[in-house]
Amino acid sequence: MADTALQRRPRLTSALGSALQIGLPAATLIAMLAVIFWIRPSAMSYFGFTLLFKFAVPLMFAALAQMLVIMLGDIDLSIGSFVGFVTCVAALYLDEAPLLALVILAASIAVYAGVGLLIHVRQLPSIIVTLGMSFIWLGAAVTLMPGPGGTAPRWLVAFMSWKPPFVPLPVLIALLTALIGHLVISRSSYGAVLRGAGANPRAVERAGWSVRTIRCAVYAAAGALACLAGLTLTGLTTSGDPNVAPAYTLLGVGAVILGGGAFTGGIVSPVGTVIGALTLALAGSLLSFLQVPPTWQIGAQGAILFLVLAGRILFSEHRS
């Protein structure tokens, strides 16, 4: 009996721990929503949800892109400026020359794959290579479009303001991406290989996989997700701007860590990341609902980040 108790306890607490890793940001999200609805009951509606979470959609995609890179034990400091670049391409060409726009976007995804290849082959620190890339994307965007401008194609704007029955669009997108991410990264056998490539690349190599190919593919997928972030953002702002999203880089990192991810590689959660992104996007609205003065809002966002993460650390203490 003593034996079973000894064997059971770690497994139980580890299951509890991983549930808490996602449960905690989820609880924070629900608590924030509760406060908002308490202050302004009218926000508890289809329309209210759409307004509250509208700008969470691009952030969510950017955070998932960041999650893929963090999964490999790397970090991408260029996502923010890449999203800005994509908004410029979309606003300039997607309407008038859709083919050209698609070629540019496909080429930039190939560049992302190339960055992964370079990092892998030369064993370079991803933080500095992607830092260089952030200058390159910003430069490309500024060359295309020195300031905010252009127009988003009508279909993109229409899609972002589409009102599906019953479920508001941002919530629908969040549910779908979380589900797909969960199935691919956390459930499928390929997902296990991908996470393994971050946690223990040598073991994955021994098992007959090429970590080089995996890194290229994962970087390309991150690029594609960042493209989605840029496109959805263009649909919301209806124009392009090279400097629209520098904050996405670090907010994305924040969302991944909030959602239970770790920089050690291999430990990420798509569901947690989506919830993390929603939490960070909602924090801003919550603070204005609470009538926190604008000058303190950004500081309060930092405090919220601390609070949620501190809770996570306290709860996961039992595991180690």
């Binding site: 260089g132 890339m133 952030s134 200058f135 390159i136 994307w137 910003l138 430069g139 490309a140 965007a141 500024v142 060359t143 295309l144 020195p146």
Partner: peptide, 9 residues
């Protein structure tokens, strides 16, 4: 400025 950023990167 764009070229400058590109070269820096």
């Amino acid at each position: 400025a764009g070229i400058r950023f590109l070269l820096t990167g």
